[in-house]
Design a protein around this nucleic acid. Structure first.
Lengths: 142, 142
DNA sequence: AACTTAATTGACAGTTTTACTCAGGTATGT
DNA sequence: ACATACCTGAGTAAAACTGTCAATTAAGTT
């Protein structure tokens, strides 16, 4: 039961983006350096997050990425969804129809309930919550 | 974020064991047939669950496995722990000391909180809850 | 004692997923 | 033109997952 580094990187990168953007685009090169994540790998993640409508890209010199919406309106579960990490703990429940388990499958309810708890928790936190927290920690240091 | 089939099999096997044992040992061969899980794979899982003190083994003819404690006292998180599936979502938090993240690591709190939610949910369900539910479903059918 | 059942153990192997890299290409500002 | 920075798809090494196989030990039955 591990959250993939892909999802972990995506959340870290989004916090870093929000923290260092002043409305201006932030280049992946800078996020890469600050978070020590390979730039080419970040590119993969940001393409997906752009398709997920949580960031917008600005091409050319001085370009980079910008949040597509205010940080207060971006939830953590959206970030993880956009990089295609499933939050449902068992594969048979990926489709919307629900799984084909017959009535004997009592463990089904356990995984379904667990999935709902996970979703609920990650949807209760916004990107702004994390950047605020990061700012406080940076101030404590100085 | 997937629960491994190992953990899923372990829970299913335990429900099946509890459901079909009348205080008598249940052979893996029978669980294997009823749940359609390879017997040799089940052997691996039950060795670990025996070491985890949630089942006891009875060798020889008529032998098999028995619950080590009443089903009401066996929680689902214990079953998953015993087959060595981590419930902590990120690897840096496996040790008890906590991870070496410095203060900048704001995402740490997210994963820690998530891990606690997962643990809390799976600890709130006992094996007896599941077997009761399974019994009800079987009665509905007949 | 011989035989059968069933747990026990350790080694090993195929497949899938993860976590990347690499080689290009495209858009845009100076 | 030229530099910057996003964009795309293919490829790949390592790890994890999901098992199998062979051989052994223990205990009951005949």
């Amino acid at each position: 039961m591990r959250m993939s580094t892909k999802a972990q990187y995506a959340v870290r990168a989004m916090v870093n983006l929000d923290l260092h953007s002043g409305g201006q685009p932030v280049a992946l090169k800078d996020i890469s350096r600050r978070e020590d994540i390979s730039q080419t790998y970040l590119e993969q993640l940001f393409v997906k997050m752009r398709r997920g409508k949580i960031v917008r890209s600005v091409r050319g010199p001085g370009g980079g990425y910008v949040l597509a919406r205010p940080a207060r309106e971006i939830r953590i579960d959206e970030i993880i969804d956009s990089v295609e990490e499933s939050l449902v703990p068992v594969s048979c429940m990926d489709q919307k129809h629900g799984c084909q388990c017959d009535d004997q499958c009592v463990t089904h309810n356990v995984w379904q309930g667990l999935g709902e708890k996970i979703r609920q928790f990650l949807a209760s936190i916004t990107l702004a919550d994390l950047t605020d927290e990061a700012r406080e920690k940076l101030e404590m240091k100085s």
